[in-house]
Design a protein around this nucleic acid. Structure first.
Length: 484
RNA sequence: CGGGGUGUGGCGCAGCUUGGCAGCGCGCCUGGUUUGGGACCAGGAGGUCGCAGGUUCAAAUCCUGUCGCCCCGACCA
């Protein structure tokens, strides 16, 4: 694609300032707008449509794996949040507290949920009594509030939307299986629907969820070379069951504490979508979640005006049931202006219908991912459009995958490690002994954190080597990166 | 919470040094000509210059205080 700046003056180039590029894009593409409260945003219709597709596509997978949706309260009595020691400690700095209601001081302060383990567990304690009640598989879609100091649209906001699954099981093995199963669901969903390749792995002790036994995550690489945690799945062990009293009587008559999991993805996925696929002309939406999959731009000249419009409207009718398409009939905007605007919004496929196309008996199709133009005869549209969209979906994934491969490097020693982190960015693979001290030192010296201990290597028990940091201990290869 | 920056029509900015009619570009509205990669002409609407106090005949401009926002770090989905 040549001369991007010729076309789009409103978006800062990624090379010049990636962070500014991101902010330009989210605003100009009308995904969100800043609200009066710091760190809070209005998600505009175009941005919310992406979230709705995520809800739909991930939602059906969550249901297909046996989970049911439910809803729990926004307010959590402070005492409930404080039950699990690690949990409180982890969230205390970022909770919002309600101290007054109905014009009176509240007897007990209410926490605005930063996550729902506490309130849900308090309910589960009532619902679980017998092994016959298990497994209990519930999911909720809601908003949560975490008082963040440093906020960025979609990536880190004071309030965000997410989905949180909370399950209860009779055995540790079952809970672990569930934890990994949902991590797998996330991986498949993010790769196939959002076209974002991810590394699935386990978090270190330092990085795990406050109150969890083990935390797993999927990690994606943004096009500026920084990593982003795109989803997490926790094996909560019996930590919460013990403090909330979730017990059940098992087949063997014994009263036992239950095993739990929780897992979630948030509107942060929209941030990932933007940063993985976007380019200097704006967004590039994967067709599967694109609010608009195909935009029709009529090229209205003085002469064939009516014929062109009639054809464009006919196309709308023809595909209204099968594709998400939009016809841009606005007067007073030149075709070129419309091209740029819809490109900024990342619409995967543009169809141009003009006098020339009418004469040739078809439309001009232009791909957002490659910029490639082609002529599609009218008789082949039904076959061609879905095919093009599939190619774009696959193309975006392959492009992101290639980028990740090219930006994943193995470091032999600490010197090389630092050089990669600073100069080249991306994922760095290196041996790590497993000691928190080394993890900490690496972070202090390079700002890179352990993103995860990849599942593949863990299972295979592959090559061990001397720790990149201390050289003494031996360990497996883990993923490092500077992260969002 | 540290470091830096910035607040002037919807957006981007100039004006501040040296106090004296609040301006420019884009966008918006109306009408007309246009329309195959951000068209043009004419007319028009829109701002208590972040907020509070002070100095002055007079403050966007000088002084004091305060708040918001943005960027970079420390902490986090």
């Amino acid at each position: 694609m040549k001369g991007d700046q010729e076309f789009v003056k409103e978006v800062t180039s990624q090379m010049v300032d990636f962070s500014q590029w991101y902010l330009d894009v989210v605003l100009k593409a009308e995904l969100m707008d800043y609200a009066p409260v710091k760190g809070c945003m209005a998600i505009r219709p175009y941005g919310y449509a992406i979230w709705e597709h995520i809800q739909q596509l991930l939602g059906e997978r969550i249901k297909a794996t046996g989970h049911k949706n439910a809803y729990f309260p926004l307010f959590i009595p402070q005492s409930l949040l404080q039950k699990e020691a690690d949990h409180v400690e982890g969230f205390a700095p970022e909770v919002a507290l309600v101290t007054r209601g109905g014009g009176e001081e509240l007897a007990e302060k209410l926490v605005v949920r930063p996550t729902s383990e506490a309130i849900i567990c308090s309910m589960y304690a009532k619902w679980v009594q017998s092994w016959r009640d298990l497994p209990l598989l519930i999911n909720q879609w809601c908003n949560v509030v975490r008082w963040e100091k440093n906020t960025r649209p979609f990536l880190r906001t004071s309030e965000f939307l997410w989905q949180e699954g909370h399950t209860v099981h009779a055995t540790e093995a079952e809970a672990e299986e569930e934890t990994l199963k949902m991590l797998g669901v996330y991986r498949e969903f993010v790769e196939n629907e959002l076209a974002i390749p991810v590394i699935a792995g386990r978090k270190t002790e330092k990085e795990k969820f406050a109150g969890a036994l083990r935390t797993y995550s999927i990690e994606a690489l943004m096009s500026d070379g920084r990593a982003l945690q795109a989803g997490t799945s926790h094996n909560l062990g019996q930590h919460f069951a013990r403090v909330f009293g979730i017990q059940f009587q098992d087949r063997d008559d014994e009263l036992k504490y239950a095993w739990q999991t929780s897992w979630g993805v948030s509107t942060r996925l929209i941030g990932a979508l933007i940063m993985v696929h976007g380019d200097d002309r704006g967004l590039r939406m994967p067709p599967r979640v694109a609010p608009v999959q195909v935009v029709i731009i009529p090229i209205i000249m003085k002469k064939k005006r009516e014929e062109v419009l009639a054809k464009a409207r006919e196309l709308m009718q023809r595909f209204a049931g099968t594709l998400r398409l939009e016809l841009d009939e606005r007067e007073g905007y030149s075709p070129g202006w419309k091209f740029n605007e819809w490109e900024m919004k990342g619409v995967p496929l543009r169809l141009e219908v003009g006098p020339r196309d009418l004469e040739n008996g078809g439309v001009t199709a232009v791909r957002r991912d490659t910029g490639e133009k082609s002529f599609v005869p009218e008789t082949e549209l039904e076959q061609c459009l879905p095919m093009l969209l599939r190619e774009i979906q696959e193309g975006l994934f392959q492009q992101a995958l290639r980028f990740r491969r090219e930006n994943t490097r193995y470091a032999e020693n600490f010197g090389q490690f630092k050089e990669i982190v600073v100069e080249q960015k991306g994922f760095v693979l290196a041996h790590w002994c497993g000691e928190a001290g080394c993890e900490e030192r690496i972070k202090e010296e390079t700002k890179a954190t352990i993103r995860c201990l990849p599942l593949e290597e863990m299972d295979g028990g592959k090559v061990e080597g001397p720790c990149i940091c201390c050289l003494k201990g031996r360990g497996k290869i883990v993923y490092f990166a500077r992260a969002y």
